[in-house]
C-alpha cells in the first residue's frame, strides 16, 4: 500500500472507532462499586435501595416484583432530583415547615443514638428515685364551692359564703384537679394546688357571678412502684439523655461556629 492509502486506511479505522466509542455510554466506568445510579454526581447505592425494599416488604408482608423494585429505584432517583431542586431554591431556609422538619429530623437523629443503648437497672432506679414526682399520681381534692351574686372580696369567711351565696353541688369524694375543672371552670381549677385545707379561694368570675371555693381535704397519692413504671422510666431516661446529648451537640456547633450578635438591636 502506498503511504496515502495507509493514511486513509488508518483514518477509516479511527473514524469507525470514534463512532463506536461515541455510541456507548461511559457511565459504567465512573460508577463507584455498588452504586446503582448517579444523579448529578450523587450516587444511589445498592444498600439504599435494599433498605427501601426491605422496609416496604416488611410493611406489606410480601415480596416486591422486579418491576416494583425498578420503580423504587426510579422513585429514589426522582427524590434525589427533587431534593437537589429544593436545595437550589433554598427551601430549607425560606420555608418554615421544611426548616422545622429538618431540625426535628436532625434532633430525632441525634436522640436516636441513645435509643438503642443498653441502660442498667441501677441507673434506671437512680433516675426513678431522683424523679419520683414524675411517677406519683397528682393529689385528689375534696372541694366545696359557692356562687355569689356580689363580690365579697378575697377575705370572705366560710360563714359569710354559707349565708349569702348559693352552694354548688360538688362530688362528695376527692378528685384530681383536672377532673374538677368541669365543676369549677378553668381559672379556679388552675389555682387548686395553691390553696391550703380550709382556706377560701376566690372570687373567680363566672357568667356574671362570683365563684368561691374551699379545699376541704387533700388526699396525697403514693408513688407507683418501680416495677410498674419501669418501661416509662426507661423511655423518660432515654428521652432526657437524648435531649442532653442534643444540647451538647448544639453547644459543640456553637463553639465551632462564628456567631456575632448585634447588641445594639437586642
Amino acid at each position: 500500500m502506498k503511504n496515502k492509502e495507509v493514511l486513509l486506511f488508518l483514518g477509516a479505522v479511527a473514524g469507525i472507532a470514534l463512532a463506536a466509542v461515541g455510541s456507548v455510554n461511559s457511565e459504567n466506568d465512573v460508577f463507584p462499586q455498588d452504586t446503582l445510579a448517579v444523579v448529578n454526581g450523587v450516587g444511589i447505592s445498592e444498600n439504599q435501595l435494599k433498605a427501601k425494599i426491605d422496609q416496604i416488604e416488611k410493611a406489606r408482608e410480601a415480596a416486591l416484583s422486579e418491576n416494583e423494585k425498578s420503580a423504587l429505584l426510579t422513585s429514589l432517583v426522582n427524590e434525589q432530583l427533587l431534593l437537589e431542586r429544593a436545595a437550589e431554591l433554598g427551601l430549607a431556609e425560606s420555608d418554615a415547615t421544611v426548616k422545622a422538619t429538618i431540625i426535628d429530623a436532625f434532633k430525632e437523629f441525634i436522640i436516636s443514638e441513645k435509643e438503642g443503648a443498653e441502660v442498667g437497672e441501677g441507673e434506671l432506679r437512680a433516675f426513678y428515685d431522683e424523679n419520683i414526682g414524675r411517677y406519683t399520681p397528682s393529689p385528689k381534692y375534696l372541694i366545696s364551692a359557692y356562687l355569689a351574686k356580689a363580690d365579697f372580696g378575697g377575705d370572705v369567711t366560710v360563714d359569710t359564703l354559707k349565708a349569702n351565696a348559693e352552694a354548688i353541688e360538688m362530688p362528695d369524694r376527692p378528685l384530681p384537679a383536672g377532673l374538677l375543672r368541669r365543676y369549677l371552670g378553668k381559672d379556679a381549677s388552675a389555682q387548686i394546688t395553691q390553696v391550703q385545707v380550709g382556706e377560701v379561694s376566690g372570687p373567680y368570675k363566672r357568667l356574671g357571678d362570683y365563684l368561691y371555693m374551699i379545699v376541704d381535704e387533700i388526699e396525697q397519692q403514693s408513688p407507683r412502684s418501680f416495677d410498674d413504671v419501669k418501661a416509662l422510666v426507661q423511655a423518660d431516661y432515654t428521652r432526657i439523655e437524648g435531649e442532653k446529648l442534643f444540647a451538647e451537640y448544639v453547644e459543640k456547633l456553637r463553639a465551632e461556629a462564628d456567631i456575632q450578635l448585634n447588641e445594639a438591636l437586642r
Partner: peptide, 19 residues
C-alpha cells in the same frame, strides 16, 4: 449524535470514500 460520533462519521467518510 455526540460530536465524537459526527467526527467519526466525517473521518470515515472522507477516508473510505476518498480511497
Amino acid at each position: 449524535l455526540p460530536l465524537l460520533v459526527w467526527a467519526g462519521i466525517g473521518l470515515l467518510s472522507y477516508c473510505v470514500w476518498g480511497a
